[in-house]
């Protein structure tokens, strides 16, 4: 089943003014339910414009020619627009700036309340959403979201979106501004959300390492057009395509290219550091490759946390671990919590 179906979508900003800009140019796109799509492209390539069409935040400029359909509902149909918005959860850049309620619980409950759910259902959804994002209910529910650390605030904001149980989760640069551990945690959280809440994920990202490790499909935009569409290996492996589309490549692929320039040829479809490590060890005649687990980029970074904080190393889920360390009362070391959003 198609979660998203877009036909002939164009969008022009400031139409008929000197600032007129064609942001989307005749986009045709369908996204299969259950896929993890990375939407990439330079600043100004049309990514944000495209995702804002998915829940009707931007309205079709030509309803006769273009169409946007989400789970069978047209974004142009006002009668089903509310329903459609419940199904597309949008996590914008720096979503913590949108927190507004005086407690974490009220903030997360805002969406479900608007859906006119029963009080029990709302409470159940808030608890579940907090559990999924790794915020302990007893500890966080009554706290002000503004007293939390940056990473915690962001998880409250995401909980507010997933409490509406969207079928499609759209995230615009969700890890921007987080430290390496916060990034690793949030990226594994997104994988978990796909499994447990929203089967279809659309991730807007500039980080090609994240994209290579997470997505099963890449859609690249340039000047409002789709210039590449395929699996990460297909897209990044085709260096001509990458160059034509003006895309960045993952660090591992960049190193492969630098080695090739020096006469050392490796497989061009290497896109993660784990793959590169295995290939290099093979080339160096080290028989250690079978020792590698199919670890992802992120489990590596999570290991760094374990080394740093040995007390929690027995737990396997990084999110759980973060929440348990949060139980150590109001952490005095959260120095920037109050200053960050001034």
């Amino acid at each position: 089943m198609q979660a998203v179906e877009i036909k002939n979508l164009s969008y022009i900003y400031s139409k008929k003014t000197p600032n007129e800009k064609l942001a989307l140019d005749n986009i045709d796109l369908s996204v299969e339910e259950g896929s993890f799509v990375a939407l990439i492209g330079a600043t100004g390539s049309g990514k944000s414009t495209l995702i804002q069409h998915l829940n009707g935040l931007l309205v079709l400029q030509n309803k006769k020619r273009s169409s946007v359909t989400v789970n069978g509902m047209s974004a142009a149909n006002k009668k089903t627009l509310r329903q459609l918005r419940y199904q597309v959860g949008m996590v914008f850049q720096y979503p913590e700036y949108q927190l507004f309620a005086d407690t974490v619980e009220k903030d997360i409950a805002f969406g479900p309340k608007n859906m006119k759910l029963s009080a029990e259902e709302i409470s159940e959804r808030v608890k579940r959403a907090m559990e999924v994002v790794g915020l302990n209910y007893a500890e966080f529910a009554e706290r002000s979201p503004f007293d939390l650390s940056g990473g915690e605030k962001r998880r409250v904001a995401i909980a507010g979106v997933i409490a509406m149980r969207p079928k499609i989760l759209v995230l615009d640069e969700p890890v921007a501004g987080l430290d390496p551990i916060g990034r690793a945690e949030l990226l594994s959280l997104i994988k978990k959300l796909q499994k447990e809440v929203s089967p279809t994920v659309i991730l807007v990202s500039h980080n090609m390492d994240d994209v290579a490790a997470l997505a099963d499909r890449i859609i690249a935009l340039k000047d409002g057009r789709i210039v590449a569409d395929g699996t990460p290996k297909q897209v990044f492996g085709d260096r001509e395509l990458v160059a034509d589309a003006g895309l960045d490549i993952p660090a591992a692929a960049r190193i492969v290219d630098k080695l090739a320039q020096r006469g050392i040829q490796l497989d061009k479809t290497i896109i993660t550091m784990e793959e590169l490590k295995a290939a290099l060890l093979g080339l160096l005649g080290k028989t250690g490759t079978e020792k590698f687990q199919a670890a992802t980029l992120f489990s590596d970074e999570v290991n760094a946390e374990e080394r740093g904080d040995g007390s929690n190393s027995s737990e396997s889920d990084p999110i759980e671990r973060r929440s348990s360390s949060n139980e150590n009362a109001l952490s005095i070391e959260d120095g920037e919590g109050g200053g960050k959003d001034v």
Partner: peptide, 19 residues
């Protein structure tokens, strides 16, 4: 709470594997 940049992390991993 920080991590090595990818290239440095790879060098370290290779070293740990005896390279």
């Amino acid at each position: 709470g920080l991590a090595l940049p990818p290239a440095a992390a790879l060098a370290k991993d290779l070293k740990e594997q005896g390279v």
